[in-house]
Design a binder for these strands. Structure first.
Length: 832
RNA sequence: GCGAAAGUGGCGGAACUGGCAGACGCGCCGGACUUAGGAUCCGGUGGGGCAACCCAUGGGGGUUCGAAUCCCCCCUUUCGCACCA
C-alpha cells in the first residue's frame, strides 16, 4: 500500500491541467457562462493565508461550475502599482518595476502550487503600459464629458520631507518617516465627478439582493443622502450667507449662525470688527491643529464671535455670526444655522458660550421633553404663520415660502464627495494631461497614448512629484497649438487600476480598445465576486461608478458589474489578524511543504464558513490531514478490486443499499451546499460522512482480498461510491481527487468530467422516522412507511408498548388535538 | 453617539422554510493491533440523576401545539461610520 504523498501527486496534476488548458475559456462563451472573480492581489512578495482562503473559496466555485458544464471565466492578475514598490525602491535601491515583476513571478508560482484553476492566458498586471494606457484613455473620456476636473484640495503635508503624505502615512498626526507634525496644504488636484452618479449608486442598492446586507448598508451610509434646503441669511454690511439645513422647520429657533473656520469668508466676515484679533488667533490655532484631531467627534467644541450679525429671514431678528470648529467645510455650504433647542451640537455650543435657546417644537400634550429635543415628533410652536404644523408639513411650507421669496430652495445633499485621484507619487499611471500656457489644460492626443512612466527619475521620498525629477518627461509641446508646454507630473490613485480590471480580463491583448463591448455583454455581470470586507466601500463604490461611466460610453457594461458578492472573513491567529509586526504569520508555502496544497485548502474551507473569521489552528489542520490520508487509503485499498465492476442500481444487500444511498445523498448535499448555499464547510463535512460510511462498509485494512470474497454488487456499489467520493472532493482537494479518479481506472480528466446527477431513487427511503411529541416534548420515535398518514402513525404509537402509556395516559380520552407534519413529527397535545 | 452583524458543548462549528439541539472535525476517555505509538482502526463524549426522567442555544419576557430560529427589553463582542447640520 503506497503512502499519501502530496509532494509527488500535486505538481503532476498541476502540470496536466496547464498542458491541457483545462481552465482556459474562449473569448465568447459557447456554453452557459459563469464569471467567477476574486479580488486581485497586490504583489507584495508572498501570498498569505488571507489570499489562500479568498482564492480557495473562488476555486471551489470555479471548478464546480466547470464540472457542471459552464464556460467559466476565472482569471487572475496583479494590482501592481502602489506605494510599497516605491518604498522598496527607496530602501533597497531597486527599481519598482524590477521589484514588482520579481514578486509577481514568485507569487504566481505560489498560486500554481495551491492548485488554483485560473485561466492564466488572461493574466494582467496593472503596472504594464498595455494596461495603464486604458486608465489614461478612460481619464480622457471622462475629461471630455466633464467627469474629470481640477480643483484645490487640502492634502497632508510633511514640512520636513517637503512631500505629500497619503492618509496611511500619517500616524497619530506625525509623518511616518521623520516624525514631524503633519500640516495641511492646498494643491490643485484632479477629481472624478462620482457625485454625478450619487443618486443612481444609491438607488441601485435597493435591487442588489446578491450583496451582503452590511455592505449595502455601509455604501448607503457612505453616499449619505439627505433632503433639506439652502437658506440665505442677509448679513449686516456684507454679502448674504448661505446655510444648508435638513431641519428648516426649526428655523424660528435659530439663535446664531456658525461658519467653518475653513469657510472662504470666515476672515472677511470679521474684517474691521472689534473681534478681528480674536478671530485671527482662532483661525491660526485651527490651522495648526494636527490633522487627526481635527475630524474627531470627541474634540471639544470651540468657537469665536465674529463681531458681525445676520438676519433670520423668517423672523427678521438679528443673530450673531460665530466661527465654530465643529462646522465642516466639506459638507453642505460650510455654514449652519444654530438651533440649540433642537440639535445636540448646537445645544452644547450655545451652553458653552451662553447663547440664547428658543424652543420651537412641542409635543402639544403639556409634557414637553427637556431640551435639546431632537427627535422627529411634535409640531411647530412660536413659528409665526407656520405654527402648529407637524414637522413634515412645516418643512414643505417653509421651503415653499423661502423659494417664493427668493432666499432659499429645497435641496438634496450627499455625503459622498468627488474622488480625488491625483497622487504625487512615482509608481502609478501618469495622468495624460498637458498644461499649455496658451490653451490651458489639454489632454494628450489619444494616438500618443500611453504616456509612459519615465525611467530616469530620482526616488528619495522627499520633495514633490517624482516625475518632476525626470529631465525629459515634463517637457512637451502643446498638442493643440504646438508651443512649449508642461506635462502633468502627478499619477493616478491606484484605485483607478482596480476599478475596471475585470473587464480587461475579457480581452487582455486588445491594443485598439480596452476590450470589445460584445464580450462585456456576453460575460457580465460577474456571477460571483469574492474578496475582503475591507473593500466594502471604496473599491466596490469606484468599481460601480466606473461601470456606469463605461455603460454611458457605449462599452457594453451593465450599470452594476457584480451580481453576487461574498466577503470572506479574516484569517486570525491568537485572535489577531496575521501580520509581520505581530509575528503570527503562517506561510502558505510552509503548509504546502508540510501537508500539501489539498490539505491546506481543505482546512481553510472546513474550519469556518466563508463569511466568518477563521482562527488558525495547528491541530485543526492535522484533522484534515488525517481525512486526506483516509481518503487515500480507502481508494488505494479497493481500487484494484472494484475496477471494471458494472453499475448496480438496486443492490439486494442491505449494507450495499445503505452505502449507495449515502453516496447519492452526499452528492446531493455537496451539490446544494456549493451551488445554492455556498456553505463549503458543511459540504466537506458531508464528504467526511461518506468516507466514514465507506470504512464501515469496506475497511481499508482488509484490502482487496476481503472484497474479492464479497458479492459482485458489493464491489459495484463500492466502486460507484468511491467515484462519487472523488467527484465530491474534486472542487476542494483537486489533486487528491484526480489521483483517486485515475486509480479507479478512469481515463478522462476529473477536472473537466461532468458532475453527475444523483439517482432520485436513492434519495427517498422506504420508511421514515417520525418524532412523537407530547405537548411539544420528545417522547419517542416510530418507523412508518414514507408518506404515511396521521392515522397510521397513531396506530404505530399504540402498538409501541413504551409510547402507548406516555401518549395515551387514559386510553386517549384527554387528547385535545394533534399536530402532524408528514414524515417528520407528530405532536399530541393533552389537556391539563 | 449612530448603524450593522454575531452570541450554541472544553474548542471550531452544524441545525436550509418555526418541527429530533450539538452533524462534521479538534480535544479528551476507553478498547483493539502492537516491542512501542505522537501511526491506524473501533467505541464513548452537553450537564444532572446514572433508571423512567429532568435541565440546557448570553439574560429576562412574549407569540406558538412546538422557538437556537419570530417579536420586545437588557447584556456582551466584533466591524463600519464618526460633529454630515
Amino acid at each position: 500500500m503506497a503512502d499519501y504523498t502530496p509532494s509527488s501527486i500535486e505538481p503532476r496534476w498541476q502540470r496536466i491541467w496547464s498542458e491541457r488548458r483545462c481552465f482556459e475559456v474562449p473569448d465568447l462563451p459557447e456554453r452557459p457562462r459563469f464569471y467567477c472573480l476574486e479580488m486581485l492581489p497586490y504583489p507584495s512578495g508572498r501570498i498569505h493565508m488571507g489570499h489562500v482562503r479568498n482564492y480557495a473559496i473562488g476555486d471551489v466555485m470555479a471548478r464546480f461550475k466547470v464540472m457542471r458544464g459552464f464556460d467559466v471565466m476565472h482569471p487572475m492578475g496583479w494590482d501592481s502599482f502602489g506605494l510599497p514598490a516605491e518604498n522598496a525602491a527607496i530602501q533597497r535601491g531597486m527599481h519598482p518595476k524590477e521589484w514588482t515583476e520579481s514578486n509577481i513571478t514568485d507569487m504566481r508560482g505560489q498560486l500554481v502550487r495551491m492548485g488554483f484553476a485560473y485561466g492564466w492566458s488572461r493574466e494582467l498586471a496593472t503596472h504594464r503600459p498595455e494596461y495603464y494606457r486604458w486608465n489614461q484613455w478612460f481619464f480622457i473620456q471622462m475629461f471630455r464629458r466633464g467627469l474629470a476636473y481640477r480643483s484645490l484640495r487640502r492634502v497632508n503635508w510633511c514640512p520636513e520631507c517637503a512631500t505629500v503624505l497619503a492618509n496611511e502615512q500619517v500616524e497619530a498626526g506625525v509623518c511616518w518617516r521623520c516624525g514631524t507634525v503633519v500640516t495641511q496644504k492646498e494643491l490643485e488636484q484632479w477629481f472624478l465627478r462620482i457625485t454625478r452618479y450619487a443618486q443612481e449608486l444609491l438607488d441601485d442598492l435597493e435591487t442588489m439582493t446578491g450583496w451582503p446586507e452590511r455592505v449595502v448598508t455601509m455604501q448607503r451610509n457612505w453616499i449619505g443622502r439627505s433632503e433639506g434646503a439652502f437658506v440665505d441669511f442677509p448679513v449686516e454690511g456684507g454679502a448674504p450667507l448661505r446655510v444648508f439645513t435638513t431641519r428648516i422647520d426649526t428655523i424660528f429657533g435659530a439663535t446664531f449662525l456658525a461658519l467653518s473656520p475653513d469657510h472662504p469668508v470666515a476672515r472677511d466676515v470679521m474684517a474691521g470688527s472689534s473681534q478681528a484679533t480674536d478671530v485671527e488667533r482662532f483661525l491660526q490655532e485651527h490651522r495648526n491643529a494636527p490633522v487627526g484631531e481635527k475630524l474627531s467627534a470627541e474634540r471639544e467644541k470651540a468657537g469665536v464671535f465674529s463681531g458681525r450679525y445676520a438676519v433670520n429671514p423668517f423672523t427678521g431678528s438679528r443673530i450673531p455670526i460665530w466661527i465654530a470648529n465643529f462646522v465642516l467645510m466639506e459638507y453642505g455650504t460650510g455654514a449652519i444655522m444654530g438651533v440649540p433647542a433642537h440639535d445636540d451640537r448646537d445645544f452644547e455650543f450655545a451652553t458653552l458660550y451662553r447663547l440664547p435657546i428658543a424652543r420651537v417644537i412641542a409635543t402639544g400634550d403639556g409634557t414637553d421633553p427637556p431640551l435639546p429635543f431632537t427627535t422627529d415628533e411634535g409640531r411647530t410652536i412660536e413659528s409665526g404663520r407656520f405654527s402648529g404644523l407637524p414637522r413634515g408639513r412645516a418643512r414643505q411650507a417653509m421651503i415653499g415660502w423661502a423659494e417664493a421669496h427668493d432666499f432659499g430652495q429645497g435641496s438634496v445633499q450627499f455625503r459622498l464627495k468627488d474622488w480625488g485621484i491625483s497622487r504625487q507619487r512615482y509608481w502609478g499611471t501618469p495622468i495624460p494631461m498637458i498644461h499649455c500656457p496658451a490653451c490651458g489644460v489639454v489632454p494628450v492626443a489619444e494616438s500618443d497614448l500611453p504616456v509612459l512612466l519615465p525611467e530616469d527619475v530620482l526616488l528619495t521620498g522627499k520633495g514633490g512629484s517624482p516625475l518632476q525629477t525626470s529631465p525629459t518627461f515634463a517637457k512637451v509641446s502643446c498638442p493643440t497649438c504646438g508651443v512649449a508646454a508642461r506635462r502633468e507630473t502627478d499619477t493616478m490613485d491606484t484605485f483607478m487600476d482596480s476599478s475596471w480590471y475585470f473587464y480587461r480580463y475579457l480581452d487582455p491583448a486588445n491594443t485598439t480598445a480596452p476590450y470589445r463591448p460584445e464580450l462585456a455583454r456576453a460575460w457580465f455581470p460577474i456571477d460571483l465576486y469574492i474578496g475582503g470586507i475591507t473593500h466594502a466601500i471604496l473599491h466596490l463604490m469606484y468599481a460601480r461608478f466606473f461601470s456606469m461611466v463605461m455603460r454611458d460610453l457605449g462599452l457594453g457594461a451593465p450599470g452594476e458589474p457584480v451580481a453576487r458578492l461574498v466577503c470572506q472573513g479574516m484569517v486570525l491567529k491568537g485572535g489577531a489578524a496575521m501580520s509581520k509586526s505581530k509575528g503570527n504569520v503562517v506561510a502558505p508555502d510552509d503548509m504546502i511543504e508540510k501537508y500539501g496544497a489539498d490539505v491546506t485548502r481543505l482546512f481553510v474551507l472546513f474550519a469556518a464558513p466563508p463569511e466568518k473569521d477563521l482562527e488558525w489552528s495547528e491541530s485543526g489542520i492535522d484533522g484534515l490531514h488525517r481525512f486526506a490520508r483516509r481518503v487515500w487509503r480507502i481508494v488505494d485499498a479497493h481500487a484494484a478490486a472494484v475496477a471494471g465492476s458494472p453499475m448496480c442500481a438496486r443492490p439486494s444487500g442491505a449494507a450495499a443499499l445503505e452505502l449507495r444511498r449515502k453516496a447519492h445523498q452526499t452528492l446531493t448535499r455537496v451539490t446544494d451546499d456549493i451551488d445554492r448555499r455556498l456553505h463549503l464547510n458543511t459540504a466537506i463535512a458531508a464528504v467526511m460522512e461518506l468516507v466514514n460510511a465507506l470504512y464501515a462498509f469496506a475497511p481499508a485494512e482488509e484490502g482487496a482480498e476481503a472484497m474479492s470474497g464479497r458479492p459482485d454488487e458489493d464491489r459495484a456499489v463500492l466502486g460507484e461510491s468511491l467515484e462519487i467520493l472523488a467527484v465530491c472532493l474534486a472542487p476542494f482537494a483537486p489533486h487528491l481527487a484526480s489521483e483517486a479518479w485515475e486509480l479507479l481506472g478512469r481515463k478522462d480528466l476529473l477536472a473537466t468530467h461532468k458532475w453527475p446527477e444523483a439517482d432520485p431513487a436513492m434519495l427517498a427511503t422506504a420508511t421514515v422516522t417520525v418524532v412523537v411529541q407530547v405537548n411539544g416534548k420528545v417522547r419517542g420515535r416510530v418507523e412508518v412507511p414514507q408518506g404515511a398518514d396521521e392515522g397510521s402513525v397513531l396506530d404505530a404509537v399504540r402498538s409501541d408498548a413504551r409510547l402507548r402509556g406516555t401518549v395515551f395516559p387514559d386510553g386517549g380520552g384527554r387528547i385535545a388535538r394533534t399536530v402532524y407534519v408528514p414524515d417528520k413529527l407528530l405532536n399530541v397535545v393533552i389537556a391539563a
